[in-house]
Design a binder for these strands. Structure first.
Lengths: 243, 243
DNA sequence: CGTAGGTTTGACTGATCTCAAGTTTGGTGG
DNA sequence: CCACCAAACTTGAGATCAGTCAAACCTACG
């Protein structure tokens, strides 16, 4: 514990500052938290379903996703995660984890004991408020996800997912360019939007044929952002302060 | 304000006691909250999308649902609500409401100013913890909803929705019998599980033909609970302490 | 007893899945 | 540097689930 690397919590603090006003003392308290770091391969399990949540996990590098599985093994991805995201806030006050978190790319995570976070929250109401907001925004994104999967067509779903991912990525790191390597496979996109990988492929092809996106290898560039937004029926307000 | 009716908060307190240990002082503080009551018709709008949340709304009688709408007007129901449910906790720390809440039947609601709730939470950490849990369980139910709509077939989706509704209803009021009047129309069920009302009708017919449920008018009785659970792929653990 | 909203059913259409066969890509070892 | 391999992507053809449209039938309620 207490490794000498600087700034493990930098992305977290940047995010929490968007969610509430933090004082210098608040920031110091976060930086003083005892932590452990871990580097993982792609497809590593970061939070396992069923186990009680005793730690608090922060994604600092790479991409990850939360997922659930049906009894007959079909997978649903609930959300994609980018550096700065808290991966298991949803389990802080629950007795067992109801979903898994898995890395998509190789990734780095930082974990802190839940007891330390509870103490932090008790002493620092601004941080408590920021975490409340983070949890509520997460739920808001889940609500939009239900709408997307339940009431939109395949093409719209894929477009909406692209819009959300790009928007969140930009908000977390404004320097990220429009062109980016999509970290997830088409099968993972399908698992996120409730389609098969084959159909995702056809929908991406349609977007490409219509000149909305340009694909070179696995790197995707948005050629016509207004049209992508229109096709995806994307209104960013549900992201609240995460956008 | 401060009408003389007793026990407006009874169903809320009962629920919060399942979520955390409350002291006598905690219960007294809740009962002392200033409140307003309102009775509404079916299909009345209880929480409107877009407006900032300034009050905290509790459902005390009847049924309600949260919903969102796509740009082209298709509706998705996110969750059904029963007496004791808090209808807009999700907006407590957000700048604007991202979904509507509408009554399904005629209903009674009690509202309290958010400022009073924030004060209550500051003074009573047990209540704060119970509300955290409530919000996190709500999010857990949304995750299961994404899985249901994204990765299950029509028949499974309808069966799962019935299982969840019956289970939550039982937990909130153990005296409720198996046979019950379904408060929602088949169109509303369809909007909840991402199907058309026509298809919901066919799926209910299938369940009836297979002897899993019995319908007399709009009252439904579960004839074969184990089989309904199996068809719906229903594992109640995601309900955490709400079941 | 008439009306409106909800339910039921049928016939047809269309979106998405399934299965299956290539093709491309990126990484690895010779 | 090349050959090979596994994983991911691409495409086609046929099957199936769910949507659409339309009509008839309840049922509660004024």
């Amino acid at each position: 514990m207490q490794a000498p690397e600087p700034n493990v919590f930098a992305s977290l603090i940047r995010k929490l500052e968007r969610l509430a006003d933090l004082t210098h003392a608040d920031r110091m308290a976060i930086d003083a938290l005892p932590y452990l770091t871990r580097s993982v391969e792609p497809r590593a399990c970061l939070v396992r379903e069923g186990r009680a949540g005793t730690k608090f996990t922060l994604l600092t590098e790479g991409y990850a996703c939360r997922q659930k599985t049906t009894g007959d093994g079909k997978r649903q991805i609930l959300s994609f995660h980018i550096p700065g995201d808290i991966l298991d806030l949803q389990h802080m006050y629950l007795d067992w984890a109801d979903c898994n978190v898995e890395s998509i790319t190789s990734a780095c995570i930082v974990s802190v004991a839940v007891s330390n976070i509870k103490e932090l929250v008790r002493q620092h109401p601004n941080i408590a408020e920021a975490l409340w907001r983070d949890g509520l925004i997460d739920a808001s994104m889940l609500r939009e996800q239900v709408l997307n999967v339940g009431r939109r067509r395949g093409l719209q779903r894929v477009a909406h997912m692209l819009c959300e991912f790009i928007t969140r990525r930009r908000a977390a790191d404004p320097l990220a360019p429009d062109a980016f390597e999509l970290p997830m496979t088409q099968e993972q996109i399908g698992d996120a939007v409730g389609l098969t990988s084959v159909h995702v492929n056809r929908m991406l092809r349609t977007l490409r044929d219509d000149g909305v996106i340009v694909q070179e290898g696995r790197s995707v560039r948005v050629a016509d952002w207004p049209r992508l937004i229109k096709i995806g029926d994307f209104y960013a307000h549900y992201l609240h302060r995460a956008a």
